[in-house]
Simulated assay, not measured.
Amino acid sequence: MSDGPTNSLLQVAVKNNQPPVKYFTDKIVLHALFSEDGRMERGTFLETWRSLPDSNEVQKDFPRITITSIDSTLDLLAASNLFFIAKRKNGNQDVLYLSARVPKGVPFLIELTAMVGQPGLKCAVKTPTPEIAPLFFESLEMLFKP
């Protein structure tokens, strides 16, 4: 990790037998790193959520994202190794709980809140590494783009 705010740009230098060295940047999408072992049991999810301090929770609103179907949303997220844990109703809103894991076993505990068919998605993520939450939010937004 470099100093300064977290961003998704990767600086690359490629050196071979023919000069000069080639330099370029590329964008890292965090969801490409989500591992297949990111599924948590409900009890483990709750225990992990409670064990992390409140300061490790980061929230973001996505006013332009509309969830049209819970099932299709869960399928979309599962395809990127975001695993469904539970669902509950909060008035007229659906709250989804999911888990994901990146290399070195770093978990992401995710709470998505939305009203099906209405614009607006709220995401709360709790992780031992909250400094990379902006990369998570960027990936989530990319996953929901048509």
Rank of each mutant, 00 (worst) to 15 (best):
M40Q: 10
D54H: 05
Q59L: 07
F62A: 06
R50I: 15
V102Y: 02
S35K: 00
L96S: 03
C123N: 03
K15A: 07
H31S: 11
V14H: 09
F34A: 00
R50M: 14
S99E: 03
T6A: 15
V116I: 13
V14R: 06
S51P: 10
E57S: 07
S69Q: 04
E36G: 12
Y97S: 00
Q18H: 12
P128E: 01
F136E: 00
A124C: 13
S69E: 05
D37H: 11
F45Y: 15
R101H: 04
S99D: 05
P53N: 01
Q18R: 15
A79Q: 10
F62D: 03
F62M: 09
N92Q: 09
W49G: 02
D75L: 11
T68G: 14
E138D: 09
A13I: 07
E36S: 14
G91I: 08
L74Y: 02
K87I: 10
V95L: 12
Q93E: 07
A100D: 00
S55I: 10
E57M: 04
L109W: 11
V102H: 06
F108L: 12
F62W: 09
L82F: 01
T6Y: 04
I110W: 06
F83Y: 15
R42P: 00
H31I: 08
K89G: 05
L9D: 12
S35R: 11
I70M: 13
V14F: 10
E138Q: 15
D75R: 13
T44L: 15
A13S: 12
I132N: 04
E141N: 12
N81V: 03
T48P: 01
R88E: 08
L9G: 04
K145V: 14
A13G: 09
P63G: 02
P53G: 06
L121T: 01
F62H: 00
S35C: 07
A78E: 07
L10S: 09
E138R: 15
P5E: 09
D3A: 13
A124Y: 07
L112M: 13
V106A: 09
G38E: 01
T127I: 06
L98R: 02
P134S: 03
H31M: 05
F62R: 01
T73W: 13
I110L: 11
D61P: 10
K22D: 14
R88Q: 08
C123P: 04
L33W: 15
K104I: 05
P5C: 14
A79D: 02
A133M: 04
V102E: 05
G117M: 12
L46T: 13
L109I: 06
K104W: 03
S69A: 13
Q59C: 00
S35P: 08
V21C: 09
P119R: 02
F34Q: 03
F108Q: 00
A78D: 11
P63Q: 02
V21D: 04
W49T: 00
T25C: 08
M1H: 07
Q11V: 11
S51R: 04
P5G: 07
W49K: 00
V58S: 00
E41R: 08
F83I: 08
L98D: 04
P19G: 13
T48N: 12
